[in-house]
Design a protein around this nucleic acid. Structure first.
Lengths: 205, 205
DNA sequence: TTTGATTGTGCCTGTTTGTACAAAATATCC
DNA sequence: GGATATTTTGTACAAACAGGCACAATCAAA
């Protein structure tokens, strides 16, 4: 084990490992090997072993990895062995879909607050949650100590809203607006732009 | 210019450059520099210059890059100087949101077909499009020569549907199901798993 | 005790990023 | 109008990083 700084590219693969392991666990499998896992997710066995060994010696020669044990280690490392409250800002079609998404279960997150600036939407309910006005957003986010937000507003509003999120103490933003956000160093942003993802593939067609 | 094989990591940045350039163009800006563009999107100027120079000498010393010209070059390279028909498979909340998304404009794509296997949904309309049965999917995809599909079905069905897409000649899949797909080498897959993206950030919290 | 499986890691190779500068274009000054 | 300063590209070179190979060490099973 090497306790130096872990490259982000490795951190980015851990959720993929975790996802595959949780699928195996659901099927009742108790043990797996880097080989088997690698074939499942299209990553070389050596890379998986090296990635995992950054955090400790979790496997056993001859046997492989205990799936429940490795899942717990990965959940620890990724800090998803708890439930994070997440706010969604912008309840258009995409925000709506993410609010109703049921894939957060057992993966460390739950939706806690919804915001929009459209007076027609404010007060409406999506599932169990009432849509709140963005005018009370900073206050509410601080009150609930929210650290994670999903940004599903139009590109034209995204930077302005991101500034407010930062002001409210949010440290992780999942940005669906097709624009690069300017945020302080200690705030992480992940980008989901379906069109950019498509464009990345058309090059090869 | 180096006409050897271009690394995928560079291809992945081109849509980001294009997106930023199109924003500048909308504001009426005619010219930019690697420095300015880099500050906009948080990428070093040297990297932008090197990436772009893989495809030709598109800039001019002292002046920078002509925005309309560079946009056209990038659209050529990414093959989005045309409109690709895209099929969406699985019209749950997410598929629905993507069908109604209006961010495809001028970026190379349009939604052409929607499929679902739920009898209650088949025949219903989303915007201008009728939801078709997955039982006719392969046939319809071949008929329309669809090369690109967005997969928004539950994880349990994703691999099976992906197999059908491959059979129908689809070569690019944008997969929203939280599972790694097994497809032939000549089929590209991009993954969007919001929870995996969130987990990648919680590590740093 | 032997055989087979599988990890963790040292070493090497290839890839990616950053630095620095000549060359070229434009702008400014006198 | 010519000389000088400024800007900015494209790329050579160097440094840092990431990925694959191969194998000793270890464990389990026969």
């Amino acid at each position: 084990m090497n306790s130096a700084k872990i490259p982000d590219i490795i951190i980015g693969r851990l959720p993929i490992y975790l996802r595959a392991l949780q699928r195996l666990a659901e099927k009742g499998v108790q043990t797996t090997s880097s080989q088997e896992l690698g074939e499942m997710i299209g990553i070389s066995a050596a890379q998986i072993r090296k990635d995992i060994s950054q955090f400790g010696e979790f496997g056993k020669q001859g046997t492989g990895y205990s799936i429940p044990f490795l899942i717990e280690r990965l959940r620890d490392i990724l800090k998803v062995n708890r439930v994070w409250d997440v706010a969604i800002v912008g309840v258009g079609d995409m925000g709506h879909a993410l609010a109703r998404y049921n894939g957060y279960m057992n993966r460390g997150f739950r939706i806690a607050l919804l915001f929009d600036n459209d007076p027609k939407k404010i007060g409406q309910k999506v599932g169990d949650f009432e849509i709140l006005s963005t005018s009370v957003m900073v206050e509410k986010l601080k009150q609930h100590k929210i650290k994670i937000a999903i940004l599903t507003v139009p590109a034209s509003a995204a930077q302005e809203v991101a500034d407010q999120l930062v002001k409210a103490g949010v440290k992780a933003i999942l940005n669906y607006a097709p624009i690069t956000l300017n945020v302080p160093r200690d705030v992480r942003v992940q980008y989901i732009d379906p069109v950019a993802h498509l464009q990345r593939m058309t090059y090869y067609l």
